[in-house]
Structures are given as structure tokens and as C-alpha cells.
């Protein structure tokens, strides 16, 4: 063994060297002298297995509220909701949370057009949406200035997007119940609360109206939950709910879901 180890190493190393040289030459040829498109290989598309249906599937779409921003445990209302439902139904619940912080209605509309999201939506039993908060509150100066005209504009485009989202969802999945979580007014304790409240109420009203036109689409109000002691339920940013606030929302949604 000792006697031949040098020779074996030599032979192995020469072979390795040749292999690597060949690889390098081929790589250079491939990367610099061929156009990629020609070499696309035929790929046997794997069958998209029909997902096994044990338990319920919840798909959550929307913005930071879906994500759970403000909840120290990171669960958000979706997390608490799933906990509660699992306890209530003793069934396994699969959750797909596609919420992205800062999402607006137009971004949501883009998202539901993606193939993988659509695939998940098709399998969903419940679809939960929080959207609109960023359209309204984060639209820059409009909300701060209480510029009536601009706010109306924002609302119109939001409603249009939401309408499109709902149509898309329905076309993908005609059996799942869709819950849309309404807005609350985080600024209710501040000056101008009368004005802000009115704006949020109008917003919610129009949303509610839109949802009513879809079958199995439920508008879930949250305005009243935060109406009296808003600061107890808000996170330190005075905008997102805290754990308590999320729990309130979750309870309300849970009570609406039935088997």
C-alpha cells in the first residue's frame, strides 16, 4: 500500500487534472461561444400531484396585518386564528401565508396572477385578505392633508384592484369562503379624529359593498374593535395592532368560520 500510494495518487491526480481541464474548456465554450437558448433541454413536466386533502387549507393574502407586524410573537391574526380553529375543529389546518409588508391592492393583484400562488388558491378552503391599509394611510400627503379628492382617487383605484382580485380568486376557486378584514382607524385618538374616522368608514363601506356582490365573500369589520381603547391594542408604532389587537381580530374571524 505504502509502496504504491505515490503512484496511485499520481494517476488519480492526472485523471482529475484532465477531467478539470476538459470541464474548464467546455465551460468556456458554453458560456462564451454558444447561445443558450439552443440548448434548452426537454424537461418532463412532473405531474402536479393533486394535493392530499387532509384537513383544511387556509390561504392568507395581503399586507403587514397578514404578516403579523407588531405582534412580538410574529403570529399575527392569522397565527391566532389558525390556533383557534385547530382547537375548535380538531382538524389539521395547513396555512399558506403570502402576506407581504407594505403591499397595496395593485401589488396584491399582481401576486394572485402568479402561477404558484394560484395553485395554492385553487386548493384553499378559506381565503383571508387584508388589503387597503397601505393604499389609504401610506399614500403620502393625501391622507395627511385630508385631500378629499386624492383620497377618493386612491379609493377608486383600490376598489378596482380589489374587484379584480376577487374575480381572479373566484375564477380559480369557486368554493372557498373569502374573508376580507376591514380597516380600523389607528388615528382615532388624535386630532381630526372626526375626519379620519369618516374617511375610514367610507372606505370600509365601499369595500363592504363590493364584497357583497361576490358570493361567499365576507367583509369582517374591525373598526369597532379598536374604537374605544385604541392605544391598548396598538403596537408602539401606533399603527399596527399589537398581540392583543391581533387576537381580537382573530376571534372575530374565527367566530365567522364554520364547518
Amino acid at each position: 500500500m505504502r509502496k504504491y500510494s505515490v503512484q496511485m495518487t499520481l494517476i488519480f491526480s492526472v485523471l482529475s487534472f484532465l477531467l478539470m481541464m476538459f470541464g474548464l474548456g467546455w465551460t468556456i465554450q458554453n458560456q462564451f461561444f454558444s447561445n443558450g437558448a439552443a440548448e434548452v433541454i426537454e424537461k418532463a413536466k412532473p405531474e402536479k400531484e393533486a394535493s392530499k386533502k387532509d384537513g383544511k387549507v387556509v390561504v392568507a393574502l395581503g399586507d403587514s396585518l397578514t404578516r403579523g407586524t407588531g405582534d412580538d410573537s410574529g403570529k399575527g391574526y392569522i397565527g391566532y386564528l389558525v390556533d383557534e380553529l385547530e382547537e375548535k375543529s380538531k382538524e389539521k389546518i395547513t396555512l399558506h401565508n403570502f402576506g407581504v409588508k407594505g403591499y397595496r391592492s395593485n401589488q396584491l393583484l399582481n401576486q394572485v396572477k402568479q402561477s404558484e400562488i394560484q395553485r395554492q388558491i385553487k386548493n384553499a378552503d378559506y381565503i383571508l385578505i387584508t388589503i387597503g391599509g397601505n393604499d389609504l394611510f401610506q399614500s403620502g400627503q393625501a391622507f395627511v392633508d385630508m385631500d378629499e379628492k386624492k383620497i377618493t382617487q386612491a379609493r377608486e383605484s383600490y376598489l378596482k384592484n380589489l374587484q379584480a382580485v376577487l374575480v381572479e380568486l373566484r375564477s380559480l376557486n369557486d368554493h372557498a369562503a373569502i374573508f376580507h378584514i376591514g380597516l380600523y382607524n389607528p388615528f382615532i385618538d388624535l386630532n381630526d379624529s372626526e375626519q379620519t374616522t369618516k374617511i375610514v368608514r367610507d372606505w370600509n363601506y365601499e369595500t363592504n359593498k363590493l364584497l357583497d356582490q361576490q358570493k361567499q365573500a365576507i367583509y369582517v369589520p374591525t373598526f369597532d374593535l379598536f374604537q374605544l381603547s385604541v392605544n391598548d391594542y396598538l403596537y408602539t408604532d401606533k399603527f399596527h395592532p399589537n398581540a392583543e389587537g391581533y387576537r381580537l381580530i382573530a376571534e372575530r374571524v374565527a367566530s365567522l368560520i364554520t364547518w
Partner: peptide, 21 residues
Amino acid sequence: NTVQMIPQWQYLLMEFSLVWF
């Protein structure tokens, strides 16, 4: 635009030749 889909063994060969270099 220039994307190509290749079997993994080819990719590995390319990758390892670069690693080697």
C-alpha cells in the same frame, strides 16, 4: 434572455471546473 436549462451533471462539471480554476 440568455438563460439555459441544463441537466445537473453538466452544471456540476462546469461548476467544478471553475472551482478548480
